[in-house]
Each structure stands twice: as structure tokens, then as C-alpha cells.
Write a protein that binds this DNA or RNA. Structure first.
Lengths: 223, 223
DNA sequence: ACCTGAACACCGTTCAAGT
DNA sequence: ACCTGAACACCGTTCAAGT
């Protein structure tokens, strides 16, 4: 009986760093970053918050771990493929993963103690460029501009009040009457000409910019 | 006497939304975003935290206000100038302002209730492009890619463990021994060839990428 | 070795009470 | 009209005590 209860508790608990990270990620995915607290996370795992501290040093350490799990979900640039297609696929994978884990966006590049998946990812990207013949300098340029764009675009995109045509109506109460007054003619024009059109999806801008950047890198690489 | 005390209190307090926003910004500039609490802010202003709620709706509203102050510090794209130079100057101004207020970086494009300075800024950028002859569509492309890059680059830059050559030594304890093991050969190469060189400054990458993007926009605009 | 209860030093925010 | 004290419902984290 006592043994059974102990086994049941063990089965239910079986706490581990990995299980904690997974639960924390799903909590943040579902409820947003600000809804992730050690206490709620403990609840979800059927345990007191204090038990978590046996497996993670503190919340910062847990965030580091969560970010590294997210990094591990990103496809590495495929080998045996021209650098441009490899960079393209990898960029799209980053954006996909960040869309799945919006809370991670601001954290990915701002952890000062990068984990192994993070380092492996960055190493693979540089490796892909270097083995395509990029100089160290040119690889640094390409890397910097691509990652800046990918993270910045996704950040803007996730925050945008209107991403799909339907959203424009929702936000109307807030801003639209100020548009009507003619205070912001170019924003109003943009809203009417583009954001309110049926097929509009801000996400489509991503690949346009990505290709423009890849064009630029290709040109700089060639000469 | 009673009058004098009242006047003294009034002089010291003279609380207003603007004074609150300025104090909040300087607190965040100095101590980082996480050090900004309503209670500490009240302390700094010689007032109880609860008094702040007479001038801001809540902390979110205060953040909205702070972000709009930051927007107001950014130079609008100058008129009477070719679009390319105007975009270039404005991009550099954004980065300068964000360097002054690092805590604002993740917040600038992620507030769902943009303030007047924000709207004015975005309207001016679009206006600059439109009056240079950009179509609405092309202006949207240019805008999206530039802002994505500017915010993403700055986000990455502010978080980077080594931004100046001296920093590399500091971070050595953390990552360098993993480099030595040869696990991340391309990161190691990059660190040795670039990040540890005397003149190295990651910030220099910014204008390289900016010009590459402006080249791309110019080319797309021309044909 | 792992989990817990109680405690500490914080948060944002509401509300009735003061002036 | 503005400020305050007390209170509420939360936080992250430490530590001694349990098993």
C-alpha cells in the first residue's frame, strides 16, 4: 500500500530537467510568456514549485534550457545543396519554429549563455557558407544580415495589429478614426490599398525580403 | 506654514504623465527593464506607487507611453533628399536611439496600441518613399525589410556576448573550452579570425547589411 | 536524493479613506 | 483632484524539515 502510493507518486512525478522544460514550453506556447511562473508550472506537473529547483538552477537557467530546446527544433541548413537554397530553407524553418513559440522570439539571440543546440545551429550555418567558398568575413556579413532580418521580421510580424485582412476591422476602433482625420495619410493609404485587400497576409512579405537579401549576398559573394 | 508645506509638497510632487514617463525611462535605461517597478518608480519620484495610477492607467499603459517617447526621439527621414540617403539616416537614428534605450528594443514594434509619435514616424517613412515615386506595394516591401533588419540587428547586437574585442576574453570561461574541443570549428574560426582582432566591433556590420539592403531595394525599384 | 511548508522580500493593482 | 495605507493575489527563491 505504502509502496503502491510511492510508485504512483513516482510515476506521476518522475521530474526531470527535460520534462520541466517541455512543460514550461507548452505553458508559454499556450498562455504567453508572462503566464509562465514557477508556481503554475509546478501545478501543471503535480508538484510544488520548490521541487523544480532540484532540476533547474533558477528561472533564468530554465529559460536558457527552453530556448535551447527551441533551437533544436530548427532544421539545420541541409548539406549537399547550393548555399542559397540551404540558407533559404533554414530561414524559413527559423520563422516556422518562432511562429510555434512566439514567446521565444526576443529570447533566442539574447541569452548570454548559449546552449549546445544554439551553438550547433550557428556552427552549421557558418559551415554551410564556408564550404560554399565564402570567406570568413563574407560569411560573417551574410550571417549577420540574415539573422537580423529573420528575427526582426518575425518580431514585427508577431506584434502587428493587422496581419490578416480580418484583423484590420478589429483594430479599427483604435486607430482608424485618427486615419480618417487625415493625420496619417500614408498609413491610411497603405491600410486601404493593401492591408484591407482580401488576399493580404503580412507574412508574405517575409520571402520577398529574404530573396532580396539573398540576391544581395550572392552579388557581393560573386565579385 | 500649512500653505508652505503644501507648496513644498506640490513642488516636489507635481506629478504628471510626462514626468512619470521620463523617470520610468531613466530608471529602465540605468537598471534594465526588469528593474522597473511601480514601487521603485514611486520612490524615485518621492511618492507612493499608488499615486502613479492617477496619471497612467496601469503599467502596460505606462510602457505604451514610454515607447512613444522613444519613438519621438528618432529623427524622421529628412525631406529634400534622395530616398536612399533619407532611409539610411533614419535607420542609423533608430539604431542610435535603441542603443540609448536597450530595454525598448523588443517593445517598439510589439505594442498593439501605437502612440502618436509611432504613427507619425511610420507615416513619415512611407511618405518619404511614396514621394520618391515608390508604388504602395514597393513602399510596403522596402518598409518591411528595412524595419525587420534594423530591429533584428539591434536585438542581436545588444545581446551578443562579445561585441568588442575585450569582451571575448570575458566570455572565454563559458564557451571557449568547448571551442577548444573542436565541437564547433566554424564558430571557433570566426572567433579567432574576427572577433578577437583588435579593430573588431560587431556594430560595424550594421551599415554593411543596411547598404546591401538599400542596394537591393534600389534595384527592385528601378526595374 | 528528492520533495515540501513556511517564510522572505518582492510584485501590480483596488479601494476606501484622507486632504 | 490628487495622494495614501491597508489589503489582495500574486511572484522567485531559500532553507530547514521531512521521506
Amino acid at each position: 500500500m505504502a509502496t503502491q502510493a510511492k510508485q504512483a507518486a513516482k510515476r506521476r512525478a518522475a521530474l526531470s530537467r527535460e520534462r520541466i522544460l517541455r512543460a514550461a514550453i507548452s505553458l508559454a506556447d499556450r498562455g504567453g510568456f508572462e503566464s509562465l511562473s514557477m508556481r503554475k508550472l509546478g501545478d501543471k506537473l503535480g508538484v510544488e514549485a520548490m521541487s523544480l529547483y532540484n532540476h533547474v538552477r533558477n528561472k533564468e537557467d530554465m529559460l536558457d534550457g527552453m530556448v535551447d530546446v527551441v533551437f533544436s527544433e530548427i532544421d539545420l541548413p541541409p548539406g549537399g545543396m547550393d548555399w542559397r537554397s540551404a540558407m533559404r530553407q533554414r530561414a524559413i524553418s527559423v520563422r516556422q519554429v518562432l511562429t510555434r513559440h512566439p514567446w521565444a522570439n526576443g529570447l533566442m539571440e539574447s541569452r548570454t549563455t548559449p546552449g549546445p543546440a544554439n551553438l550547433r545551429h550557428h556552427d552549421a550555418v557558418l559551415g554551410s557558407l564556408r564550404s560554399a567558398g565564402f570567406s570568413v568575413e563574407m560569411a560573417a556579413h551574410a550571417y549577420s544580415i540574415l539573422d537580423g532580418y529573420i528575427y526582426g521580421f518575425t518580431l514585427t510580424e508577431l506584434a502587428l495589429p493587422f496581419r490578416k485582412p480580418g484583423d484590420v476591422a478589429r483594430v479599427a476602433g483604435n486607430i482608424m478614426e485618427r486615419f480618417r482625420a487625415g493625420e496619417y495619410p500614408h498609413l491610411a493609404e497603405m491600410a486601404v490599398d493593401r492591408a484591407m485587400k482580401p488576399g493580404y497576409n503580412y507574412g508574405d512579405e517575409f520571402e520577398y525580403g529574404l530573396d532580396l537579401i539573398l540576391d544581395g549576398i550572392e552579388r557581393a559573394y560573386a565579385h
